[in-house]
Simulated assay, not measured.
Amino acid sequence: MSTPRAHDADEGDEGDEKGVDDAVRTLLLLMPRMVGRVKKIPVPEALQSFSLAPRHLSLLSYLLFDGPTTVNELAARLQVAPTTVSLLVGDLSRQGILERREDEADRRRRIICIAADQQPAITSWLAPGAAAWRKALAPLTPDQRQIFVDTLLAYEAAVSGEEPG
């Protein structure tokens, strides 16, 4: 996977390139294994009859970890249009996974939350992944955790052809 280098490159650059190539090689082998293992996390029986996709998982994760919120706040966190979130929420509401209720402070707004009877199943589904991330990230300093997250975001942007940030 090495690329040809100019003849005037100093040895420090060559050593760094080899280090990057070694890390890339390791990650190219690791990523499919990670994805495969995550996919093997069983969907709880209570949720198996629903057609849940990765886009639902992200939305449910935000609601589980951050609590009830509005469609616009979810859209901002998911970095998608509010209409997209509204469609997802509508679908999950019809299935009884989410509930919409009036915001007591502003009755024009709707607050989205996980339905109480679905909360245990969703928690058990997302808990193994959350526990694994906590275990992996706990030994890192806050700066190291941020570098790790920023690196994953930059990788996602590069794979999708987008500019990071």
Rank of each mutant, 00 (worst) to 15 (best):
R109Q: 15
G12L: 14
S160V: 10
G12E: 13
T26H: 08
A138H: 12
K135A: 13
E45T: 13
G36S: 07
E156T: 11
Y155R: 14
S61V: 05
L152W: 12
G36T: 04
L64Q: 10
G36K: 05
A46P: 03
L27S: 09
R101Q: 10
G12D: 14
V80K: 02
P44K: 03
R108L: 13
R134G: 10
V85L: 03
G67L: 08
I147W: 15
I147M: 15
D10P: 04
M34E: 09
V35D: 10
S160K: 11
D16I: 14
P68I: 06
D21T: 13
I112Q: 02
A9F: 10
F148M: 15
V71Y: 00
V85Y: 02
S58K: 12
A131Y: 06
I147H: 15
S49T: 09
A81L: 10
D103Y: 04
K18S: 10
L126R: 00
T3L: 15
T83Q: 14
P4C: 10
K135R: 14
L74W: 02
R5Y: 07
L87H: 10
S51A: 14
A46E: 07
M31G: 06
L57N: 00
V80E: 02
R101T: 09
P68M: 09
L88N: 03
T3W: 15
D143R: 13
Q144G: 09
M1T: 11
F65D: 13
L63Q: 02
V43R: 04
G12W: 12
P42G: 07
M34T: 08
D16L: 14
G129T: 07
L63V: 10
V159L: 13
D91Y: 02
R55E: 08
D150K: 15
L74M: 05
P128K: 05
R109K: 15
F148G: 04
S160N: 10
L126H: 05
V89P: 02
R33S: 07
E73S: 11
A76Q: 13
A115K: 03
V159F: 08
G165C: 09
Y155W: 15
S2L: 14
S86K: 03
L98I: 04
A127T: 13
V80D: 00
P44N: 04
L60N: 03
I114D: 03
C113P: 01
V20S: 09
R25Q: 11
W133Q: 13
K40G: 05
S61Q: 08
P68Y: 04
A105W: 04
R107T: 12
P32V: 04
E17W: 02
S61D: 09
T70C: 12
L126I: 06
